[in-house]
């Protein structure tokens, strides 16, 4: 855990400078294979800290695969192979010395379908701090749970029923619970894999608002199918197509003035 603390202090000192920011995540020539399928081809991408980066593209273009490379969730798929380097704060996360468990505490993830544990709301949020030893005693833990639920905007809705199962909440609340659960371990980066695709429009609006608030403290990478969502929440956008990045840049730039023809077709809904 000591490594995390060092970086946390680093981040405090880093006054965000809009123009020249060191990328927090850099990927170089990332290739991913599922068995014989070549899913990602030579991905180079720099992710800036405390921004929201959106990954867009048609289904099966590899954006979710790329996302899962960043916290090594692909390790759980036996047939999956990866080459190239991904660095987090300048450190190769595929290095042998890296403990994946610690990596995933630094790079949290929110999934497509809300997947709270079938435990109480409190235990859902407290689970991460418990396994990572982030709380010295139960008062500490209560505070972490309170802060996380507060920040995810769920506190007022659930404060009277912290011991009810997380699975009993509504879909939007469940997804915010998953976000609260993720920020409880105080990660540097939060990966979101189409977090709103299972939610209704109202719940989606709430989650999007939450994302905008969260970027003050966290770097967020979000995979989305919705152009509007990418336009609303992200500062930068990468357009994936057939396992490659065709275009990457400021969101406003990509949506108003795409340089590649394919991007333009996709954004305007001509294919996808």
């Amino acid at each position: 855990m000591n490594i995390i603390n060092v970086f946390e202090e680093d981040r405090m000192d880093n006054t965000p400078d809009e123009e020249v920011v060191e990328p927090i995540i850099q990927t170089k020539d990332v290739n991913v294979y599922y068995g014989d399928t070549h899913a990602l081809m030579g991905i180079d991408l720099d992710i800036s800290p405390k921004r929201v980066t959106a990954l867009i593209g048609p289904s099966g273009c590899g954006k979710s695969t790329f996302l899962r490379c960043i916290n090594r969730m692909n390790d759980t798929i036996p047939t999956c192979r990866m080459t190239g380097t991904i660095t987090l704060d300048g450190e190769n996360i595929y290095d042998k010395k890296i403990d994946v468990v610690q990596l995933r505490a630094r790079v949290g993830m929110v999934f497509q379908k809300p997947n709270p544990f079938p435990k109480s709301i409190y235990d859902n949020v407290a689970y991460g701090p418990r396994i990572h030893g982030l709380a010295a005693n139960s008062t500490d833990l209560d505070e972490i749970v309170f802060n996380s639920l507060q920040r995810s905007g769920l506190w007022n809705e659930v404060k009277d029923r912290l011991d009810t199962p997380g699975t009993a909440l509504s879909g939007g609340q469940q997804q915010r619970l998953c976000i609260a659960r993720t920020i409880a371990i105080n990660p540097e980066v939060i990966l979101m894999d189409e977090p709103c695709s299972a939610l209704d429009p109202i719940a989606t609006a709430i989650v999007e608002e939450l994302i905008t608030e969260l970027k003050e403290r966290f770097t967020i990478i979000i995979v989305t199918h919705s152009m509007q969502q990418a336009a609303r929440v992200s500062e930068q956008t990468a357009f994936f197509h057939l396992g490659k990045i065709l275009e990457f840049g400021d969101t406003s730039e990509i949506f108003t003035n795409p340089k590649v023809e394919k991007t333009k077709d996709y954004i305007t809904g001509r294919f996808g």
Partner: peptide, 13 residues
């Protein structure tokens, strides 16, 4: 999805 959730939280296998 339960396994994903736990592993995504940084729980070991």
């Amino acid at each position: 999805s339960i396994r994903d959730a736990a592993i995504g939280m940084g729980a070991s296998r």
